[in-house]
Design a protein around this nucleic acid. Structure first.
Lengths: 206, 206
DNA sequence: TACGTAAAAGACGCTTGCGTTTCTTATGAA
DNA sequence: TTCATAAGAAACGCAAGCGTCTTTTACGTA
C-alpha cells in the first residue's frame, strides 16, 4: 500500500508545543462560539483534530483547560491597541473615544462573545473571577487611570476625577448595554456616551 | 391499622393553586440559591415536597417553569419601594439615593442572586432576556426616568439629562460592581456614586 | 532501518438530569 | 360511603458529557 491511502488524507501528526497550541486555540474558539455553558472537551478535541487523551494528558480537568486557554489567548490591552504612550497631539477626549471604540469592539466581536460568557460564568466561580479580573480587567482599569492622569497633567481632566469609580463608568455602561440589553453599540452611541456622560464627569469646568 | 402509622407523618396533600404556588415558590428559591446553572426540576420537586409528575403536568419543560417562576415571583418596583408618588419635601438627590440603596439591596440579596444568575443566563437566551427586560428592567427604567422628569419640574435636573442613557448609568455602575467585581456596595459607595457621578451628570449647574 | 514514544480515534463506564411512566393512596365531590 | 381524580413517590429510558482506557500507527531518534 502506498502512502496516500484511500481517502488521501495528509494527516500531519503534530506533537509537543504545536499540538498544545492547537488545543488551546481550539478551546478558546469553542468558548467564543458556544460559550462556557456548552463548552465540551469533546468539542475541543474535534476542532483541534486530536483525541481527548492528548488533552487530558496535559490538563487534568476541563476547568484547568479553560483557565489556561483564557490566560494564554485573552487579548492584552496592547492587543487591543491600548498603549501606554499616546502622542501629544491627541486630546484626552479623543483618546477616551478611541478607548471606548476598542472596548465596544472587543465586547461585540466573536472574541468578546467568549468574554461575555466567561464573565457570566465567573459570577458563580470566584477563582475564575479572580483570574479574569487579574489578567483582563485590571490592566484595562490601569490603562484608563493612566489616561486620566495624563489628562490632569494636560489640564484636560480635573484632579478629583482620577478615581477607580469614574474609571469604571465607561466599561460599566458599555458592558451593561451589550450584555444585559443586547443593544448594539454603534459610533453614535459612543459619541453620546462621551458627550453626555464621560466628558461632563471629568472636565475641569463641570 | 390506625391512621397515624409508624412514622406519624401528617402528610397533607395539596392540590390545585396551593400546590402550584408551592412549586413556583420552590423554583424561585432554587434559582436564588443554586443559580440557573445547577437548577434542576428534581430539586424543585424535592423542595416543594411533591413529585416531578405534578410539575410536568403543569409545565411541559424546565424552561417554561423557570420563566413562570420568574414572572410570578420577581419583585415589582412597588415591592422594592419604588413608588410613583414622592412627597414634595424629598429632593431628587434624596430620592435617587434611596433608589440606589434599593437597587443595590436587591442585587445583593439572595433574591438578587437569582437575578444575577438569570441575567447571565439571558446572555445566551433571547426569549429569557426579553421577559426579564419587560418584567423587571423596563419598569425600573421608567421609574427612574419619571424621577428625572419630576426633578426637571422642580428645577433640580437639567432637561437634557432626561435620557435613557443617563437613566442607565446608575444600574450599570451598580450591576458592574456587584456582578463583575464582586465588590460589596456599602452606604459609602452609594454616597460616592451619587456625589461623584450621578449628581454632576444631572445638576443644572454642571 | 529498527524501535520506542506518544498521537489519533473512539469505545467504555459512570454520573447527572430531563421527561415519561407506573403504582399506590389521599382528597374532595356525589 | 363511594368513587373519580390527581398527588406523592419512585423507577425507567434516554441523551450528554466527563474522564479512562485500548488499539493502531506516525514520527523522531539511534
Amino acid at each position: 500500500m502506498s502512502r496516500g491511502a484511500v481517502s488521501e488524507r495528509v494527516a500531519q501528526r503534530r506533537r509537543g508545543a504545536a499540538l498544545e497550541d492547537a488545543i488551546l486555540e481550539s478551546a478558546y474558539a469553542e468558548l467564543s462560539e458556544a460559550g462556557y455553558a456548552s463548552f465540551t472537551v469533546e468539542g475541543v478535541a474535534a476542532r483541534a483534530k486530536t483525541g481527548k487523551a492528548s488533552i487530558y494528558r496535559r490538563w487534568p480537568t476541563k476547568q484547568l483547560l479553560v483557565l489556561e486557554a483564557l490566560i494564554t489567548q485573552l487579548p492584552t490591552p496592547a492587543d487591543c491597541g491600548i498603549v501606554p504612550d499616546i502622542p501629544d497631539d491627541v486630546t484626552t477626549a479623543e483618546a477616551l473615544h478611541d478607548l471606548a471604540r476598542l472596548i465596544g469592539g472587543v465586547l461585540v466581536s466573536p472574541l468578546g462573545a467568549a468574554m461575555r460568557a466567561i464573565k457570566c460564568e465567573a459570577v458563580s466561580d470566584p477563582e475564575l473571577a479572580r483570574v479574569i479580573d487579574e489578567r483582563f480587567q485590571a490592566p484595562r482599569r490601569e490603562a484608563l487611570m493612566g489616561l486620566l492622569r495624563r489628562g490632569v497633567a494636560r489640564g484636560e481632566v480635573r484632579p478629583g476625577a482620577v478615581t477607580p469609580l469614574i474609571a469604571d463608568v465607561l466599561p460599566a455602561v458599555l458592558t451593561h448595554r451589550i450584555i444585559f440589553q443586547s443593544e448594539p453599540v454603534i459610533e453614535e452611541t459612543l459619541v453620546e456616551i462621551m458627550n453626555d456622560i464621560l466628558l461632563p464627569l471629568i472636565s475641569p469646568r463641570a
